[in-house]
Design a protein around this nucleic acid. Structure first.
Lengths: 203, 203
DNA sequence: GTCTATACGCAGATAGAC
DNA sequence: GTCTATCTGCGTATAGAC
């Protein structure tokens, strides 16, 4: 049984490809229509204008990367295991949609207010920083880790997880890795980044 | 004695602001002309078209960030001191032109071949990876550090140096830092990132 | 819902006077 | 070198038939 793909879904899928590849300013409605196998008029029938369509893709991309991190911090694992899970899940998630990170980086820098608005609308959900601080303080009290500023630590971890996707072409060139080698490199990082962090902070 | 600013220089300066803020696709020739205090026609008189003008800004931005890293690796310092200098110089350099990192990230992802071409034209200069590997192997032989893949290590260091500028709006929000607090945060990182790395790799 | 045809504005680029 | 005026094409958006 073939599953029916609605026109709306086809448009969303096509828009995702084009917006992620070229950004809001660089994407073309004509290209989206072509990719979806329809014409421009139909785009406007379903989504009133380019901005509305972009908003949907932006939102979907943003929440695909951000919120699942809560669950990691909710566990009762010790701090090191939390870090291992965080790194693994984060690199895994971003790697599965590797165009999202550079797309979001660009669009959020272009207009930070869009992200702010989105987070305010999503309301209750706080970003994972506080929970991470809690876990950090417990580990510190137990003498498992040395003192280090939590904002530094979180920034370091996120940097090492995300940057390889944002700077992929540069890294590929500097490290002389083709697509296959880069994929394997990312795969190794799912484990090794966490071990790197743990060595840096363990007492 | 006031120094004369040539029209050409005014255009370059204006183009830099507009391109770094909006990217190639988002920047407007009219806005560049306005910012330079001239009209559009004059832009085309000096630089034949938008692409040519963009090329200049891209190139200037790229080489402002990439090549001074060679000098760091040429020193006779021990490995830890090399890392300290690398981190300090790199964060310093990027921080002084904090719009360059997100700009390059976007444009290089959009069209990696432009960067490749630029590096080939620059010819002899190899990127700093090999020299870093040399320094790493010496340190390893002396028993100063534990074994760890050099590509991982370099990626980790670069990630922690660069990402805070690419992901600035997100980090600012997550960590609740205003402009001033973020600047201080970056200042601290010039030292602390290196110490973090050193703890992670020292024997 | 889906199409063809078209309106309309904007942005890049050029012509030509001064 | 610098300007005003204008052309041209492209990209978003709409009108209206089916």
């Amino acid at each position: 049984m073939e599953k029916e793909i609605s026109t709306e879904e086809k448009i969303i899928a096509a828009a995702k490809v084009e917006f992620l590849a070229h950004g809001m300013a660089g994407a073309r409605m004509q290209d989206i229509a072509d990719r979806a196998g329809i014409n421009k008029a139909l785009l406007h029938y379903y989504f009133r204008n380019k901005e509305k369509l972009f908003e949907i893709i932006f939102q979907e991309s943003f929440f695909k990367i951000i919120p699942q991190l809560h669950e990691v911090f909710n566990s009762t694992d010790d701090f090191f295991m939390i870090i291992r899970k965080f790194v693994f899940v984060y690199i895994q998630t971003i790697g599965e949609n590797s165009f999202i990170a550079p797309f979001l980086a660009h669009e959020i820098n272009r207009d930070p207010s869009r992200m702010i608005g989105l987070l305010e609308k999503a309301g209750g959900k706080r970003l994972p920083f506080e929970k991470m601080v809690d876990a950090y303080q417990k580990a510190l009290a137990k003498g498992e880790i040395i003192p280090c500023a939590p904002d530094m630590l979180l920034t370091n971890i996120i940097s090492m997880c995300v940057f390889p996707f944002v700077g992929k072409p540069i890294l590929q060139h500097v490290l002389s890795k083709d697509e296959q080698a880069f994929r394997e490199f990312v795969e190794r990082r799912k484990v090794e980044v966490a071990e790197f962090v743990i060595r840096a902070i363990k007492a």
